[in-house]
Write a protein that binds this DNA or RNA. Structure first.
Lengths: 151, 151
DNA sequence: TTGCATATATGATTTCAATCATAATGTTGC
DNA sequence: GCAACATTATGATTGAAATCATATATGCAA
């Protein structure tokens, strides 16, 4: 990606949406599907974005021939894996307030609260309420409507 | 890994345990930490296991020099990423019954129900109850105590 | 500027998972 | 065999998140 931000979204059977991955400038999206023949999710631009498309064969050749490229791609994969593990850890936090606070500290609230709620597996209402309670407790600040920051 | 099964477990601040990864024969554990200086989780043998330890430098050299090794390792990473995404999708299913059924279909119940419950982010009681209800509804079968199978 | 859609926000209600208990059933080591 | 422990299983209670509802604010387009 040259600029902007895109999200990989999957629509579950139960009708919910799951944000699988968010890629910003310099990141790649859908690298993980390099080794899969098919992969079902939508790529949604969250901002105006410029994206470069690469043919799978080109990338696979690069992996085989260019060890530096290969190593750096592997590093990204490893970072993604560690990120997913952290996110799984987040998802096991039972209380909405605790989960929201932990997710905030991890920098998950970049876009809208709706997206944030979806990313951490809570209903948006529960998320708004948790944010309100955290503001009331002085744990976080809300400089303006819709913006939340560490206290 | 030469044989057996080990699990990577993280203990969260809230005192819960999260199963981050389960590695069986032929799999690797903790590959994702190749690019991290430190990584905090426990590796627990779920069965008698034989594990080969490799020095990080050796593996990194192999990645740089052996493109076949590099590609196959990358494939594993990609598969893990896809696995984590699916697991995240599972975790967003709100009703215990639905989540348990989906997780069963994905083949998550290999060990004990306790481990299964931990893997899908439910209390073991909720998991047992969901399993019971699914059996009562005829969606799954329980040939013997502690074993559950697709109907 | 006026609709229309969406995001933000909170109230009321219901549902259901977490939690606390208890018991039966396996499993392991002595 | 038996004692200690873990797993399986279910009941009762509680708390909290999902859901439904409503209102306001905001952005966007006609």
């Amino acid at each position: 990606m040259q600029s902007g931000r895109v999200a990989l979204i999957r629509h579950t059977e139960s009708g919910h949406k799951v944000t699988l991955h968010v890629a910003g400038t310099g990141d790649a999206a859908a690298e993980a599907s390099l080794f899969s023949s098919a992969y079902h999710c939508d790529c949604i631009a969250m901002e105006d974005s410029t994206v470069i498309f690469l043919k799978k064969t080109v990338v696979m050749d690069l992996i085989a021939s260019d060890s530096e490229f290969s190593t750096s791609l592997m590093k990204r994969f490893a970072e993604q894996i560690i990120g997913y593990r952290r996110r799984l850890e987040l998802m096991t936090i039972p209380r909405a307030e605790d989960r929201v606070l932990a997710a905030l500290a991890d920098g998950w609230l970049t876009g809208s609260v709706m997206q944030f709620a979806s990313a951490i597996g809570l209903s948006h209402e529960a998320t708004y309420r948790a944010l309100s309670r955290l503001v009331a407790k002085g744990r976080i600040k809300r400089p303006v409507r819709g913006r939340y920051e560490p206290a």
